[in-house]
Simulated scan of single mutants.
Amino acid sequence: MEIRHWRIGELTAVTGLTARALRHFEDIGLLPPIERSASGHRRYGEEDVRRLYRIVAMRELGIPLPEIARALDEEPDLAPMVREQLARVETRIADAQRLRRLLAGLLRLAPLPSAGQLIEVMKTMTQSSGFSPEQLARLRRRHDSDKLATWRSALADVVEELRACVAEEVDPADPRVQELAGRWSAVARDIAGGDLSVLSSMYAKLDAQGAAQATKGLVDEEVWEYVKRAFAIASALR
């Protein structure tokens, strides 16, 4: 049986990634060294495509590249990632259906909806948790007020130091910033209980809602974008 291979152009077409991004994934170790044809062109095999799917799926879930690299090394099975994507899609569908019901209800009101009803619509539009019901249940079991206070204090210390680095225009590649990014990741993993799906939802929530809103003012957008740059650099240095 002939073994199927894919050219880089075929994968860019189906993933939406650029050829440069695919080559970058190979350079930083997210993808293994890709087989080359006699003419020197990359030829991606089935295992490469499976690994690429997991990278694309985790990027879609908002996971930073260092966490993706760690997950690829620790969990070779595709099933958990497929289940996580399915749970995320089902959550989005449920949120959209709820918003649809609310909007349809507004159209039936005459002459105008109440302020309370509009507040409910806006909450549905902007404050979806981003977590599946199963993830919320796991978080509630794990989080109590003392733990939350400890985590918030630890993250606040990191954020304060990152904010100082931003003000001083320190390069995110600087060892000082890389150490802070590592401390951030450690706190985030502890909050998530080591659960990659919960961690991905946490990061996705910061991107979807905005860091300030998602963290109730603890993390501002400038610091969030700065630490994401530090994450990307850390991944490239692995």
Rank of each mutant, 00 (worst) to 15 (best):
S132E: 02
S132R: 00
S132H: 02
P133K: 06
P133H: 06
P133Q: 05
E134F: 00
E134R: 07
E134Y: 01
E134K: 04
E134C: 03
Q135P: 06
Q135H: 13
Q135Y: 09
Q135E: 15
L136Y: 01
L136G: 14
L136H: 11
L136N: 11
A137S: 07
A137L: 01
A137R: 00
A137D: 03
R138K: 09
L139T: 07
L139R: 14
L139A: 12
R140C: 00
R140Y: 00
R140K: 15
R140A: 15
R140D: 13
R141G: 14
R141L: 12
R141Y: 04
R141C: 12
R142N: 08
H143Y: 12
H143G: 00
H143M: 12
D144E: 05
D144R: 04
D144A: 09
D144K: 00
S145R: 08
S145H: 08
D146A: 12
D146H: 06
D146P: 00
D146Q: 09
K147Q: 11
K147V: 00
L148H: 09
L148K: 03
L148G: 11
L148T: 07
L148I: 08
L148S: 08
A149M: 07
A149K: 11
A149I: 05
A149D: 13
W151H: 14
W151E: 13
W151S: 12
W151M: 07
W151I: 04
R152Q: 14
R152L: 04
R152G: 14
S153H: 13
S153M: 07
A154M: 05
A154H: 11
A154T: 06
A154V: 02
A154E: 15
L155H: 07
L155I: 08
L155A: 10
A156F: 08
D157F: 00
V158S: 00
V158D: 02
V158Q: 01
V158R: 00
V158E: 04
V159K: 05
V159E: 09
V159D: 07
V159T: 13
E160W: 05
E161F: 01
E161C: 02
E161W: 03
L162E: 08
L162Y: 12
L162P: 09
L162F: 10
L162M: 12
L162G: 06
R163A: 13
R163G: 12
R163M: 00
R163H: 10
R163K: 11
